[in-house]
């Protein structure tokens, strides 16, 4: 018998103690309420700012300008973008005159590991959506915006459309049918990387981005 069989045999020999299927939907229905977009924006923003992210309200028209300002203020001269995405393309178009160097994640990581680990100060990615309850960005990395793009650069800038903010994680996975469609990696990001491992003192930029910048795209307020 293999270990697998032995483990399963032991479990199967244990008493069968059936339990009811948990009713998750009704807990959410009675404890989390649907909010208007404005309310969701406020909640999302409050939470993610509390987690030390910088948030800027932008519009479809103004975000490249804000991106430019952010890069200038932080004296960032090189940006990792995905030119194949609409926002990546727009960023490169608008910012070309500013002298910022663009880098695309256009080959597998093995080909440019050193550079990616040491020499990419910032990245811009989109997000699939967000969660108001916890101030969370949801990213599904793909061929254009791979996993490490939101992890290795010290500054991560995310463009997010306010209309993609959901009330809760539960609502988002339900309404988008995640259980049938998960990618190899799905990420919830709720602030810059941090740790409190030394004397419970909070420090940012433990291993991932030190700064998380959210361009919150909706009607300018």
């Amino acid at each position: 018998m293999s270990s697998r069989d032995r483990i399963l045999a032991k479990l199967n020999a244990a008493p069968v103690l059936p339990k009811a299927v948990p009713d998750i939907a009704s807990w959410y229905a009675t404890h989390r309420f649907e909010e208007t977009t404005a309310e969701k924006v406020a909640r999302f923003r409050g939470c993610i700012e509390f987690a030390h992210a910088e948030v800027y309200a932008v519009t479809q028209a103004t975000w490249p300008q804000k991106l430019c300002e952010v890069l200038n203020t932080k004296q960032i001269e090189k940006l990792l973008v995905a030119p194949a995405t609409p926002h990546g393309q727009r960023a490169t178009e608008v910012l070309t005159e500013t002298g910022i160097t663009f880098r695309a994640y256009d080959q597998s990581i093995e080909a440019w590991r050193e550079e990616m680990f040491h020499d990419v100060p910032a990245s811009l990615t989109g997000a699939r959506g967000a969660i108001a309850e916890t101030g969370t960005l949801v990213l599904w990395p793909d061929a254009d915006e791979p996993r490490l793009m939101s992890l290795l650069p010290p500054v991560h800038i995310v463009l997010i459309d306010v209309n993609t903010i959901h009330n809760t994680f539960y609502e988002m996975m339900q309404s988008e049918g995640w259980s049938g469609s998960l990618p190899t990696n799905a990420l919830l990001i709720s602030g810059p990387s941090k740790t409190a491992d030394i004397q419970v003192t909070l420090a940012y930029g433990a291993h991932g981005p030190k700064e998380l910048i959210v361009l919150l795209m909706g009607e300018a307020s």
Binding site: G135, T136, P146, T184, N185, A186, L187, L188, G191, S193
Partner: peptide, 24 residues
């Protein structure tokens, strides 16, 4: 655990790198 409404990262992994993916 830490009194956070959520952790900074929640990482859901459903497989190794696919043919068209660039990392993982």
């Amino acid at each position: 655990a830490t009194g956070q409404n959520i952790s900074t990262y929640f990482n859901m992994i459903s497989g190794p790198r696919k043919a068209d993916e660039k990392d993982g």
